[in-house]
Every structure is written in structure tokens, then in C-alpha cells.
């Protein structure tokens, strides 16, 4: 079940004054024969011991791996799905021993909670929501938000888990008159939630009252932006977006992420920074993750690129290895590691 591997990853030089450093510390191979779709890291408690575990998702199985000594991993639980394939893992911060998954084909059809029976330790799953689900995100304080339905019956719903993962409360947020495609928490403001919409608006809610506070239109240069991170500073809202539909431009290079600043009072906003690929590298944003001031993206070229959002440039670039494109990348929520996966089930863990 586990493979140990320690080697230094080859890193092509980037146009950086302070190059990032990626060290391959571990590799694990998902045993399932189906296509690998996602990875995450979370705390799991067994016999009174909380451990930083890895969760891997294939189309029809989600596995939990516990750490052994010297960066080896042991598969301890696997949840199986027979009808609808897994699309993504949805970690819920502040909840131990429970992880959510989104299932569907092209769009999300179900959200399920995965956990283990306290009685016999067997794998259990619970259907939390089914229907035409557009977006889902785990939030701090054991909350899960999702948007579902079509224009006339669009709903934005928050579920709150009890400390042990059970008993969930439900609350609805006032829906905007358009579909919400992505969500992001506002760092340091636990009652604020952002969403991006199909019409290129950013909406902001008060999670305590459910009020829709503002709808803010952003630059039409990029359609269907994905919101990854937001923080409020000096009365302004800073938002990190990616643009999966952006066209490559010769003058700007390839903008993969963008930092914009919004005045929530006036809704006026302006682009602050474009995070482009190093010269000579091509590709658009396919999939990515932002944590603190680090942004990682899988590109259409099959490579992974990492940006320091404060420095403003690409600090590490990981070409496809070996002859396999990268297909997903996540920052570990339990430490400062980068989890990178390939469709064939290989997951690589890098220290950054």
C-alpha cells in the first residue's frame, strides 16, 4: 500500500530573484484502477491520536492514508461508490474524522459526507444534498456552503456540522439573481463569504444574517472567473482570481492568476497584479489552489507552476513527470506541503 521515495525534484530555473524550492519527499500510488481525480490532507483521529492524513479520490473510490514513519503511507479506509463518480474532495475545516465529496458527471449531482462508524470502525457515507449543484466549499467553523438549482429556483445553503461531525443545521443565504459558480471565505472575517457568478459579478454575503450585501461587477476581459482567496485590508477587499477561460496574450504573457482590489462600499474595482508564466512557458489555468501567499496551478500544458503572490512572480515550475501530465494540485491543509497528482493514481508530495 505504501511507497517511500526521497529525491530532489528537477526544477527548471524561473525568472525569479528568490526561487522557490520543491523537494519531493514522498509518493503514494492509489491502488484503484479508475482515474484519479483529487487529493487533500486532513486531520484524522484514531485511538485518541490525531494524525495528518492524506485523502485520495479516484472516480469510484476515496481512500484515507495514515502516515507511517519515514514518509510512508498506509491505506486505512476506502469508501466505494457504484453509481455516480467522484468529482472532487471537499474538506471541511475544523471537522475531524469527516470529509465531504462532490459526485457527478460533468456537474455536481450529490454531496456526501464520509466518516467511520464509532461502533465498528466501518466506512459510512451519508447523502447531504442531491440535485443540480453548481458549487460547494467547506468553510471554517465546521460549515459547508453550496449553490444549487437554476435561475428561478437558485439556492445558496449553509450546513453546519456538530463538533463530532453529526447533527447538521441548515440555513439559506439570500440568492443573487444569477448562478453562483465559486465561493471563497474572506480571510480573518468569519462572517463574510464571497461568490463569483456566471455574469462575472462578485457577490458578498453576511453569513450570520444570510444577507446579500453587494453585487460587484468586475472587468469583462475574463469570463467565468474563479475566486480562490480574499482578504480585507484598510477598508478594501483583495481577491485572488483565476481565469480558466483567459486567452493567451503576447503582450501580457499568460495570466494564470490575478489580484484585484475592490472597494465594497462603492463596488469600484481595479486589477492590481497579473500572475503570468515565465517567458517561454505556455498554457492556461486548468486547476489550482491558493493557500496563504502561495498559488499553485496545473496548466493546460500538463505542468504545475507556483507563484508567490507577494513577490508577484513564478517561483517554481514542475514539468510533467515522467511522460505524465499533472492533473490536479492542492496545498496541504495540515502542513506546508504541495500535493500533486496524475490521472494514473500517482500522488507526489513536495516540501515547498
Amino acid at each position: 500500500h505504501s511507497i517511500e521515495q526521497t529525491e530532489i525534484a528537477d526544477l527548471p530555473a524561473c525568472d525569479s530573484l528568490n526561487p522557490g524550492y520543491l523537494q519531493l519527499v514522498s509518493k503514494l500510488k492509489n491502488p484503484s484502477g479508475s482515474c484519479s481525480v483529487d487529493v487533500s490532507a486532513m486531520w484524522w483521529e484514531r485511538a485518541g491520536l490525531k494524525e495528518p492524513c492524506i485523502i485520495t479520490a479516484c472516480e469510484y473510490a476515496v481512500s484515507l492514508w495514515k502516515p507511517l514513519d519515514t514518509w510512508q503511507w498506509k491505506n486505512i479506509y476506502t469508501w466505494h461508490f457504484t453509481e455516480v463518480p467522484v468529482l472532487q474532495i471537499v474538506p471541511v475545516p475544523d471537522v475531524c474524522n469527516l470529509v465531504c465529496v462532490a459526485l457527478g458527471n460533468l456537474e455536481i449531482r450529490e454531496i456526501r459526507a464520509l466518516f467511520c462508524s464509532p461502533d465498528d470502525g466501518s466506512e459510512k457515507q451519508l447523502l447531504l444534498k442531491s440535485g443540480n449543484i453548481k458549487a460547494v466549499l467547506g468553510l471554517t467553523k465546521r460549515r459547508l456552503v453550496n449553490s444549487s438549482g437554476t435561475l428561478c429556483d437558485h439556492q445558496v445553503e449553509i450546513m453546519t456540522f456538530a463538533e463530532d461531525g453529526g447533527n447538521k443545521e441548515k440555513q439559506f443565504l439570500m440568492p443573487p439573481e444569477e448562478t453562483v459558480l465559486t465561493f471563497a471565505e474572506v480571510q480573518g472575517m468569519q462572517e463574510a463569504l464571497l461568490g463569483t457568478t456566471v455574469m462575472n459579478n462578485i457577490v458578498i454575503w453576511n453569513l450570520k444574517t444570510g444577507q446579500l450585501l453587494k453585487k460587484m461587477h468586475i472587468d469583462d476581459s475574463y469570463q467565468a472567473s474563479v475566486c480562490h482567496k480574499a482578504y480585507s485590508e484598510m477598508g478594501l477587499l483583495f481577491v485572488v482570481l483565476s481565469h480558466p477561460c483567459a486567452k493567451e496574450s503576447e503582450s501580457l504573457g499568460s495570466p494564470v492568476f490575478q489580484l484585484i482590489v475592490i472597494n465594497p462600499k462603492t463596488t469600484l474595482n481595479v486589477g492590481v497584479m497579473l500572475y503570468c508564466l515565465p517567458q517561454g512557458q505556455a498554457g492556461r489555468f486548468l486547476e489550482g489552489d491558493v493557500k496563504d501567499h502561495c498559488a499553485a496551478a496545473v496548466l493546460t500544458s500538463g505542468a504545475i507552476a507556483i507563484w508567490d503572490l507577494l513577490l508577484g512572480h513564478c517561483t517554481a515550475f514542475l514539468p510533467p513527470v515522467p511522460d505524465q501530465n499533472w492533473s490536479f494540485v492542492k496545498w496541504s491543509g495540515t502542513d506546508s506541503h504541495l500535493l500533486a497528482g496524475q490521472k494514473d493514481g500517482n500522488i507526489f508530495i513536495y516540501r515547498y
Binding site: 463574510a192 444574517t209 444577507q211 484598510m234 478594501l236 465594497p264 462600499k265 462603492t266 469600484l268
Partner: peptide, 23 residues
């Protein structure tokens, strides 16, 4: 970018918008 392009700024924007928005 120029802060002036963004209009009047309030440090307390979240509470102010919450008191202005429909319940």
C-alpha cells in the same frame, strides 16, 4: 493602482453594508 479611483473607503464596510442591505 490609485486608491482615489476606488471612491470613498470605509474601514467598517462590512457592518455598514450589513445595516444597509435588506434583511
Amino acid at each position: 493602482c490609485n486608491k482615489a479611483d476606488l471612491g470613498p473607503i470605509s474601514l467598517n464596510w462590512f457592518d455598514e453594508l450589513s445595516s444597509e442591505a435588506p434583511p
